[in-house]
Design a protein around this nucleic acid. Structure first.
Lengths: 233, 233
DNA sequence: GCAAAAGTGTTGGGGATACACCCATGG
DNA sequence: CCATGGGTGTATCCCCAACACTTTTGC
C-alpha cells in the first residue's frame, strides 16, 4: 500500500479537549468556555484545539491547558489522556476525532476570577450544562476516570493547596466519591498511610476556628509506590 | 472558523488496532500477524485497519476482529477502547493516529490452528516480539489495562471456556496478575463471591485426574453489580 | 512406589466500620 | 447560651494470609 492508495484516508482532523478539574474548597468544578466560532457559536464547550498533522497530541494538550489558565502553575498538575471520541457526525465541518484529556489543578485566586468573565465558567461537578459536540460525553467519561483514580492513587492532593486541613481533604473525597465518611475513621485511614506531614501550623478557617495544616509527602509516596505500595480508598 | 480555514487540519488518517487476548489453558496470549504491505513488510504487527472518514471507530474495530478470527464467536467477547496513540512520526506514510482496542475471547480449536499458518502467531503474554510501528507500546498499555480489569471485574471468565475447572481459573489469574495464589485461599475467595455455579460434572484433565466443572453466573453478577457490588481480586 | 494433580479447615492479625463526647469560639 | 466546627478512642467483625495432608491415578 502506498501513500497514493490510501489518500482517501488522509481526510480526518484531530482535536484535543481538556477537562480541567479544580476544587474551590467546597465542590469539585470543571472549566467550560463559550464558543466564539461556528459551529454552535455561543454554546458552552470544553477548552479545545485542532491539532496540525505535524504536531503531537500531548504538546497540543499542554498548550491548550496553558493558554486556558495561563496564570496557574500547571507544572505539578496531573494530566492524562482519556479515550478518543470519534463519532462520525460529531462535528459538522467534517470528520474530526477528538482526543480527550483531563487534568487536575490547584485552583488559584486568579482561576476563581476567570469565572467572573462572561465567557468562562467553573461548572459544578454535578451540574454540568449542555455542551457543544459530544463534550458532555467526554466529561462523563472523565468523571468516571477521576473517581477511579481517587480510589487508587493520591490524586486528591493535586486539587488541594500545598497546605491543607483534614476537613478540606475529607470534603474533597466525599465530593469525588459521592459518599460520606466518618470523621474519625477517615482520619485514622489517612494517618495510617503515613503520607501526611504535620506542619505544626494552624490556619483560621470559617467561624474563627483554628485547624491544623498538613502537607502530602510526595517523595515518600514515590518511594513506597516503587515498592508496590497501593494507595487505596 | 470555516471548513476552508481549517483545511490544513484535515490531513490526518485514523487507524484502529486490536489487541486480542486469549488463554490457551496455560498462558495468556496475544495474536500478532505478519505485515503484507509497505512499510515494514514482513514485520509482526497487531491486526490493524485504516478508518475511512465516513466510518466509525467502533465499527472498524468490530470488523477488524471478525476478519482476523472469523470462526470465533466474538459475540460474548469483551472489548474496550484503549488510548489514542498519536506520535507524529509513528507511520512513514503520513500522520496516522492509531486508536487501540483490546478484546478478550475464548480460544477455540480453530483459533489454535491459526498459529499453524506462517503469517499469524499467538505470542505469549510475556514474550512479545518486536512489532512494527509503536505496536509494542500499545500492547504494554493493553496489558496494564487488562491487569487492572482483572482486579476489579470478572473479565477472566471471558477467556475461559463456558465450563471450566478451578485449576484453570487459578492458572489464568496467576498469569494475568503475575502472582501466585494459595490454592485453598483462592478457592475460598471465588466461592465466597457466590458467582460460580457447580455443574455437578467432572472432566478428565491431564494425567488422568478428574476435576469438577463450574460455570460463571453472569446473570447474578449483573444483578449484584447494579446494587453496587464490586468484584475484587 | 512415586510423581502429579485435586481437594479440603483452622487460626491469627490487621484493617474497616460503627459509634459519642469535649472544647473553643463567635454571635 | 447556643450553634458551629475541630478534635479524639474503643469494640467488633470480616476478610486475608499462612499453613499440610489425603486421595487418586498414570507411569
Amino acid at each position: 500500500m502506498t501513500r497514493e492508495d490510501i489518500k482517501d484516508y488522509f481526510n480526518v482532523a484531530i482535536s484535543v479537549s481538556m477537562v480541567i478539574f479544580a476544587f474551590d474548597g467546597e465542590k469539585i468544578r470543571i472549566l467550560v468556555q463559550r464558543r466564539k466560532e461556528e459551529p454552535f457559536t455561543g454554546a458552552w464547550q470544553l477548552p479545545s484545539r485542532y491539532v496540525l498533522p505535524s504536531e503531537s497530541l500531548e504538546l497540543n494538550a499542554k498548550i491548550l491547558l496553558e493558554e486556558t489558565i495561563p496564570m496557574t502553575e500547571t507544572i505539578d498538575s496531573y494530566s492524562e489522556q482519556l479515550n478518543a471520541f470519534g463519532k462520525v457526525y460529531r462535528n459538522p465541518l467534517g470528520r474530526v476525532v477528538n482526543v480527550g484529556f483531563y487534568c487536575i489543578v490547584k485552583m488559584t485566586d486568579e482561576d476563581r476570577r476567570l469565572a467572573e468573565r462572561k465567557d468562562m465558567m467553573w461548572a459544578a461537578y454535578t451540574e454540568i450544562p449542555d455542551l457543544a459536540f459530544d463534550h458532555n460525553e467526554i466529561i462523563d467519561y472523565a468523571k468516571q476516570r477521576l473517581k477511579r483514580r481517587f480510589k487508587r492513587r493520591p490524586v486528591g492532593f493535586s486539587l488541594l493547596p500545598k497546605e491543607f486541613t483534614l476537613t478540606q481533604l475529607q470534603t474533597l473525597y466525599e465530593g469525588a466519591l459521592n459518599k460520606k465518611f466518618d470523621k474519625r475513621n477517615f482520619r485514622k485511614k489517612v494517618f495510617n498511610s503515613a503520607l501526611l506531614i504535620d506542619l505544626d501550623k494552624t490556619i483560621e478557617t470559617s467561624y474563627g476556628k483554628v485547624s491544623k495544616l498538613y502537607r502530602f509527602d510526595e517523595d515518600k509516596y514515590e518511594k513506597m509506590s516503587l515498592k508496590g505500595y497501593d494507595f487505596l480508598f
